[in-house]
Design a protein around this nucleic acid. Structure first.
Lengths: 205, 205
DNA sequence: TAGATTGTTAATCGATTAACAATC
DNA sequence: TAGATTGTTAATCGATTAACAATC
């Protein structure tokens, strides 16, 4: 069955399924079951079947799911059956690590430009890119039609940079700055803050 | 009221409250309300009151919460009223960025040792640390009593390194490798995979 | 005191699980 | 055909919200 409005929590699990399936495909596997996929990602088979069935009937009774077919479908659903240009703002250590990161390849993303507000960093070469002046964010992002940005600036600058990005048309922000951003509800934010993630585990130690 | 078993989803929000409160304190604020805190972090006031009240009566009718007091309590609850030694495995770009990251200070963590399996990296100085041979993980982590590790190794090595870490006593893993880990249920894992996080947003573009 | 805001209850809403007919 | 596994339903479980008495 196809539902109209898919809960965020389900959408959030799809990339995890996608990643596991990509790995299975790399290992030469052709089919899998909700049971097997569930064991890989630590989610119940029932939930995986329910999640996937929100988008269509992609499996076959008796044999499970064709990995290649389900990969195609998930990529299409998540709109990563294309390559998205991503802007990176902040050319510090984290920005450098992301700029050199190979893990965006084949996952739907490509860093297209890097900005920094620090004039000593502007002009620096990082891989194939030259760091551009943060003053040019609005102009460059608008003319390139970029919708996705990664933010690796200090917390004190994050909100104002986010505002500028959104103003320029960005609709998805991956925020590495350790601060909650306030954004309009047509803009999505995901947070990566290692300290916060670690603090989610210390409670249980 | 104090509940015995706190849902994971509530524990997961506490670090976000903690971070916002720390910021308020840095800005010189003395008290806040569930309403105000909620606006900062994008969560309803009712939910914040409910979450916090699981652990005790930390607020005052009419005036709200003392920021300093609530900070103390949250740090205590999350067990970050101390400094945890953390092992970092993987001295690539991401490992370097984390080794140089200033954001663990005052959040309860300190990197204590860095490992890599690549013999050309062993001995390298990163900040105040010298990269140690991954062969020594078991021995060093056990003798230091380390419970927390960050994993920035390739996906292909992540599971076997995780197994070694757990064997040596690690109970919390922050995994930067783009792969789901299988761990016993007395071990916690948090995942940081920029591609996965980005894919959670493209659905909505 | 009057106003503000908590902690808590009950109602609502949403997510997960278990079970199984359908069917490959 | 016999065995396996899906998609879906209904039941259960859990989380969020709204409302308000208590009280600072």
């Amino acid at each position: 069955m196809k539902a109209d409005k898919i809960p965020d929590i389900i959408v959030g699990r799809l990339p995890v399924y996608l990643r596991a399936l990509q790995r299975m495909a790399d290992n030469g596997l052709k089919t899998t079951s909700s049971q097997e996929l569930g064991e890989h990602v630590g989610i119940s088979a029932a939930q995986i079947r329910k999640d996937i069935s929100q988008f269509g009937d992609f499996g076959k009774q008796g044999t499970g799911y064709s990995i290649a077919y389900l990969l195609d479908k998930l990529r299409e659903i998540l709109k990563v059956d294309r390559i998205w240009d991503v802007a990176l703002v902040g050319a510090g250590d984290m920005g450098h690590a992301l700029a050199n990161y190979q893990g965006f390849e084949n996952r739907g993303f490509r860093i297209a430009m890097i900005f920094d507000a620090d004039s000593t960093k502007v002009g620096e070469k990082i891989g194939e890119f030259v760091v551009e002046d943060a003053e040019k964010i609005a102009e460059k992002i608008k003319s390139a039609g970029i919708k996705i940005a990664m933010l690796t600036v200090p917390a004190s600058a994050a909100q104002s940079v986010a505002d500028k990005l959104i103003q320029a048309g960005v609709r998805a922000i991956l925020n590495y700055a350790p601060i909650s951003l306030t954004v309009p509800n047509n803009v999505k934010v995901q947070y990566i803050d290692p300290s916060t993630h670690l603090q989610r585990m210390t409670y249980y130690l």
